[in-house]
């Protein structure tokens, strides 16, 4: 075989493999959307679920998913940001940082069900937080922290060292250089990373089953006092999320329209995550443009 044919064969098989990946992806997405989208309606998106009758919705689960996501992000983002800044901008290569990095690697490859069980034993049982949004948010923080830290570290890496030198040579302290030059320059990339990790958190089920619980008590959407038990904002109430809901009705759902609700919920989940991804790209690009060519 001469090198020209070799080249053609190689390109051909690479196209084939790439096409196969795209095909599988499209088939999956298509199946979920085709079977799920017809179930969607305003009622489905807002009504509370019904355990035994048909016609239930996923309103509470949807709200829980978002609330949990926001809480988890509020807890994990500052920690991840601090850790990433330390690791990339300050830390020297020594045994301590090697240990931290290894810990982050291990934590990020931990199966989420293990994170969930740890959350159950530690937050739910040991700290007496019960099955609650707070327990769930902490578990999600453990799940999210390593991914987010690495993504922010990568964002900092995209800012060229000449920027750091520029800042320091101008008589800025290292902290001023980081906060006033490097971070603003890294914002588009950090934002993209945050939204993408939000997508993963949003779809997470295993870490939440034993921490935020599998029940969705009725909520009173007129009561926004976080100390009342039926308030949507109460962080101590159990809160089944959309992803957990899908798992639950598929394993033990006894409502007559379980299949339809499961398909509809899956579609909502997938659409939400798609929206996250598109938003990440759009916002990242827009911000980058604003920063670079005003």
């Amino acid at each position: 075989m001469n090198s020209k044919t070799q080249n053609k064969v190689a390109i051909g098989s690479l196209y084939g493999i790439a096409g196969l990946v795209v095909l599988i992806l499209l088939a999956l997405l298509g199946y979920i959307l085709v079977s799920g989208v017809p179930q969607l309606s305003w009622h489905f998106l807002t009504a509370p679920g019904k355990a035994f009758l048909k016609g239930g919705g996923v309103g509470i689960q949807l709200f829980n998913s978002f609330y949990l996501l926001i809480l988890a992000m509020l807890i994990s983002f500052p920690i991840a940001l601090g850790a990433a800044i330390y690791l990339y901008e300050y830390a020297k290569d020594n045994w301590l940082t090697t240990t931290i990095r290894t810990a982050i690697e291990i934590l990020s490859s931990l199966p989420s069900v293990v994170v969930g069980l740890f959350g159950f034993l530690f937050f739910v049982v040991k700290l007496h937080l019960g099955f609650s949004i707070l327990s769930g948010a902490f578990a999600l923080t453990f799940f999210n922290l390593p991914l987010l830290t690495r993504s922010i570290e990568d964002s900092l890496r995209t800012v060229s060292d000449v920027q750091r030198e520029g800042g320091l040579a101008l008589g800025l302290s290292r902290w001023e250089t980081v906060t006033r030059v490097i971070l603003p320059a890294a914002v588009p990339s950090i934002l993209t990373g945050v939204i993408l990790s939000a997508g993963r958190v949003f779809g997470e089920a295993a870490a939440l089953i034993y921490t935020a619980g599998q029940s969705a008590p009725a909520l009173n959407f007129t009561d926004w006092n976080p100390f009342n038990i039926s308030s949507p904002l109460n962080p101590m109430r159990p809160a089944e999320t959309l992803a957990v809901h899908i798992w639950k009705i598929n394993s033990e759902g006894i409502m007559p329209d379980a299949k339809a609700i499961s398909s509809g919920s899956s579609a909502v989940l997938v659409i939400a995550i798609l929206l996250f991804n598109f938003a990440a790209r759009y916002l990242g690009k827009r911000l980058y443009k604003r920063l670079t060519s005003a």
Partner: peptide, 21 residues
């Protein structure tokens, strides 16, 4: 060092304006 670099400024090989106006 911060004060030193204010009084002894530096321009680099690669133009490195910050990504601002």
């Amino acid at each position: 060092t911060v004060q030193i670099r204010k009084e002894i400024g530096m321009v680099f090989q690669q133009p490195n304006p910050f990504p601002f106006s």
